[in-house]
């Protein structure tokens, strides 16, 4: 048994969740300078949609059910992000950032309480059991489920990176982050690109939600709250607005938290994130890869 190796796998899994969520925070901040505090709740909604799909497909083979839950939940949360942007944020684009921030907190409350009223406040158990099989890597027991979660997350991040760097809409996103007015003058429909950014960010948060729901086995309407704050911390740690920063920040936080808790005891786990947040905000508010007058998205 290699305890450190197993902790490393835990760190990578939890870091994947943080990174996927942190990306949405960073993309939205980069493009409209909004701290979208409802983003953690999108993750929660993703887990619940996944729960619904898995419950409906309880007779189907495990992989079919998981695949359907993953796809359906990600798409549904992507659409949720589109709806939230259209209804709550777009009318406020010209108003102050504080007004948008308060609106984001409002959206968060609506999503949390909406799910609570519809489905109740208690924890629900995901209707799947992940196989515990795996392999031994350098003496550490690693499950296939862990490997699949990490591979899926990294795959999504690589796709996002290619999208933002290579496609015209990705370039338009980066252009809006630099100068929305000049972007509009190119004949680019700025609102449509902002909506697309919300779709992608929410899609990623929703994927993290299903993956985490299935991995931990239990979900509840408040599950996005702390995770959302931690993913926010991760994006600030990496440099909010920077996509590589969000990925780096997510994994770094996963490592610090996992190994910190292993060294000091599990009850310290949640403390790390917030100590890091305070340290970064006081010592280096632009974060590790934050913008130094260059690119934000």
């Amino acid at each position: 048994m290699n305890v450190w190796g197993e902790q490393l796998m835990n760190a990578l899994v939890i870091g994947s969740f943080y990174s996927l969520i942190a990306l949405g925070y960073s993309m939205v901040y980069g493009i409209i300078q909004l701290l979208n505090f409802a983003h953690g709740d999108v993750y929660m909604v993703g887990a619940f949609v996944g729960y619904g799909v898995l419950s409906a497909m309880s007779g189907a083979p495990l992989f079919v059910g998981l695949g359907a839950a993953f796809l359906f939940a990600s798409l549904a949360t992507g659409l949720l992000g589109l709806g939230v942007e259209r209804i709550a944020y777009r009318p406020l684009l010209q108003s102050s950032r504080l007004v948008m921030l308060i609106t984001a907190i409002g959206v968060s409350l609506v999503l949390e309480n909406g799910v609570m009223l519809a489905l109740g406040p208690s924890f629900r158990v995901m209707p799947v059991e992940l196989p515990r099989s795996g392999l031994s890597l350098f003496g550490a027991d690693v499950t296939y489920a862990q490997l699949a979660i990490i591979a899926t997350s990294v795959g999504l991040m690589l796709l996002l990176d290619a999208f933002v760097r290579r496609t015209l809409y990705g370039k338009a996103m980066r252009a809006i982050a630099v100068n929305p007015t000049a972007t509009a003058l190119m004949g680019i429909p700025v609102h449509r690109v902002i909506a697309l950014t919300f779709f992608i960010g929410s899609f990623l948060a929703g994927s993290a939600g299903v993956l985490a729901g299935v991995y931990y086995g239990k979900i509840n309407f408040m599950m996005g709250f702390i995770v959302g704050l931690k993913a926010f911390t991760a994006s600030v740690l990496g440099g909010i607005g920077s996509l590589p920063g969000a990925m780096l920040g997510g994994y770094l936080l996963g490592f610090l938290e996992t190994f910190g808790a292993a060294a000091l005891g599990g009850e310290w786990k949640d403390v790390f994130a917030f100590v890091i947040l305070i340290l970064i905000l006081t010592l280096k508010p632009t974060g590790l890869l934050g913008r130094t007058g260059t690119e934000r998205v």
Partner: peptide, 29 residues
């Protein structure tokens, strides 16, 4: 822009972090 009016703004306002080619590609959106 679709109808053929293009405004080159005051102070240039190129997309600094994007490459020259990317700036041009966006102009052809």
């Amino acid at each position: 822009v679709g109808r053929g009016i293009v405004h080159v703004p005051e102070g240039r306002q190129v997309f600094g972090p994007l490459s020259v080619l990317e700036n041009l590609e966006l102009g052809g959106f």
